[in-house]
Design a protein around this nucleic acid. Structure first.
Lengths: 216, 216
DNA sequence: TCGGCATAAACTGCATACGAATTTTGAGGG
DNA sequence: CCCTCAAAATTCGTATGCAGTTTATGCCGA
């Protein structure tokens, strides 16, 4: 076994972190320790540990009736966009150096999937492609602290995706950026990547504002 | 009462966060849940919640025999310096706009304290002054997400302080930066603050490298 | 039909208990 | 005096139970 005695609280933490990051939880879902405990056939305690940890890390929000996905205020989403502007360009530039050939391959496949959605209009596939690209380059970020910090606002990424993905204009912009970003990653020129990722974040912010503002 | 039912786990969390941030724990200290539980006359459970939270947030490290202060690897400290370079200049610029007259007053007092240590050589006072200045401007950062992210690597700040504070050259540089930074904050010119804080972080990194490298 | 109020249900926080893993201790043999 | 190995102590993870609090439910009167 390469399982050096995994504790249940860590297993549950990893499992739900994965589910959250893969977008498998909806807004309505309520996580209650007793229910999750039954799912894993353990007591409430390791579940409580895991859910409270996810809560403190911002992946969940604790209400008086179970844990649920945090509902980010638009103001908070814009605050996180500021963080992303500051961190992601540099992080992506650092990732460029550390990327393997297999990573590049994954990225190209995601680009192909992304571009196929122009014709198909399959937003689920676009979601997956976007997620694949993001996950791939973030995993390649060599600075662990930077990587962890970026991964902590996954909830914002998903909220923005949910808000903008059905917007045709945002869809086209996103697909275009996917190709250009992967081209930059493949070229290995960190400077190009840095600038492009900055533009990508800014474009995401613009899309979000465009979708949100007229709705008021 | 304006105490809307504080939970013990939060009380314990706050108490120990404060002790850690005030530097009241030494490297040798071992926090064991049963002992802390006795200190607060509660069971292990709320203590475990608090200590595990502090651990996940990076303020403590869990060893096989109790919790202790995390010993950051130099590599990790340098990684966090990269984060600080990216975040703190912009955060300080944002804080400049939001700073009150009382904040400026606090900053000037800290500068006075800081400069008095040139003659006295009182490193404890320098520590406090540095801490006061940092806390004041960080609290003024209007972007909550940015503020929380910056506050999360408090352990790095302290590790760097501990490593460099007794270094005479680092001492002089720090005191000089204190005055110039507060002048910039007081002037209200965000651009000046941004550049100065970047230089401040870079200077901190240099001091750290200088103190660490010859030791090898 | 609707609002107020009491009761039930749900959920969390904390206490206590036990087993497992790991470290420390200490005794006996070389 | 040192090494080895087993017993003891320490600490952690988990189970279960109870109490307090908040939310939902449903009954009653207007």
């Amino acid at each position: 076994m390469d399982q050096p005695k995994r504790h249940m609280k860590d297993v549950i933490y990893d499992e739900y972190l994965g589910r959250i990051q893969r977008g498998e939880l909806t807004e309505e879902d309520r996580l209650v320790d007793t229910a999750v405990a039954e799912e894993f056939s353990v007591s409430r305690m390791p579940v409580r540990d895991a859910l409270m940890r996810l809560t403190h890390e911002g992946y969940l929000a604790s209400s008086s009736r179970g844990f649920k996905l945090p509902e980010l205020e638009p103001a908070q989403i814009l605050e996180i966009f500021e963080l992303r502007r500051l961190l992601e360009p540099r992080a992506a530039a650092l990732a460029t150096q550390a990327m393997t050939q297999a990573d590049i391959e994954t990225l190209w496949q995601a680009v192909a999937l992304s571009e196929s959605t122009i014709a198909s209009g399959d937003v689920q596939a676009l979601y997956r492609a976007s997620e694949d690209i993001r996950r791939t380059w973030i995993m390649a970020v060599p600075n662990r602290e930077l990587r962890d910090t970026i991964q902590r606002y996954m909830a914002q990424i998903q909220a923005v995706r949910m808000a903008t993905l059905r917007d045709a204009e945002a869809h086209r912009v996103l697909v275009s950026f996917h190709r250009r970003m992967v081209e930059a990653f493949a070229s290995g020129r960190g400077v190009d990547v840095e600038l492009l990722v900055l533009r990508y974040v800014l474009a995401g912010e613009e899309s979000y504002l465009r979708v949100k503002s007229p709705a008021r």
